[in-house]
């Protein structure tokens, strides 16, 4: 379990580099990183499902100019990992896996906004790096360009890695316990909500393409 969490967090850190810092070949989109994490943990199907649901929900999230959108990657990574790692340990039968997935989705969604606030702070830090670099260049230390660039890339990786490490470790212990307290009627409702998720995703996609 610990090895799995650590390796997934490592991949999560690499994937969060792809969001805006390095490459941007879009492996950071939920549709790709969901199945990727699923493949890593040996459950490709669950990864695909969660990836598609999150992708459709966040299909319209774009970064216009300097605005920073909520981070879909970290949610896809933590949500997929938590579901795959803990779903088999539930005391309820597989009939209620849908409702468990809804609980995990609902509780990991706020991480996107939370991660975004850290991102904003980090960008302010980057602005200070540039001032530091300006002084170094004036001193004649031209090698500092590469070092500062790579160091800020490393910080982005570290942010993704530590954030997913903490989120997954906490979630693995809390979520199954929390789920066992839910009343039966609510479980039935959540199960129905899970079945309606494609409708939500497709409706959001419809709105997105109508507005283009």
């Amino acid at each position: 379990m610990i090895a799995e969490i650590a390796s997934v967090s490592f991949i999560g850190g690499l994937l969060s580099l792809d969001v805006s810092a390095w490459g941007q070949i879009m492996v950071s989109r939920p549709i790709v990183c969901g199945p990727l994490i699923g493949l890593l943990l040996g459950d490709l199907k669950t990864g695909l499902i969660i990836g598609v649901l999150l992708e459709l929900i966040w299909i319209n999230v774009i970064s216009v100019g300097a605005a920073i959108p909520p981070d879909a990657t970290i949610v896809a990574v933590t949500c997929t990992t938590l579901i795959i790692l803990t779903e088999s340990k539930l005391s309820l039968g597989s009939d209620f896996h849908g409702s468990y997935r809804m609980v995990v989705l609902a509780l990991t969604m706020p991480l996107a906004e939370f991660f975004k606030t850290i991102d904003v702070k980090q960008r302010k830090l980057n602005a200070r790096f540039v001032h530091y670099l300006d002084r170094e260049i004036l001193k004649g230390n031209l090698k500092a360009v590469g070092k500062v660039n790579n160091f800020s890339l490393f910080l982005v990786f570290l942010r993704g890695f530590l954030f997913s490490l903490v989120a997954i470790s906490v979630g693995v212990y809390i979520l199954p316990k929390l789920f066992s307290y839910l009343p039966y009627a609510m479980l039935v409702g959540l199960n129905f909500a899970y079945r309606l998720m494609p409708a939500l995703g497709l409706a959001i996609a419809f709105n997105t393409f109508r507005g283009l």
Partner: peptide, 19 residues
Amino acid sequence: ISAARLLYLLIGISCVGGY
């Protein structure tokens, strides 16, 4: 409305429906 709020809306409606 943001996607997260729509999700919570869906969960809320479904839970009420479940009761």
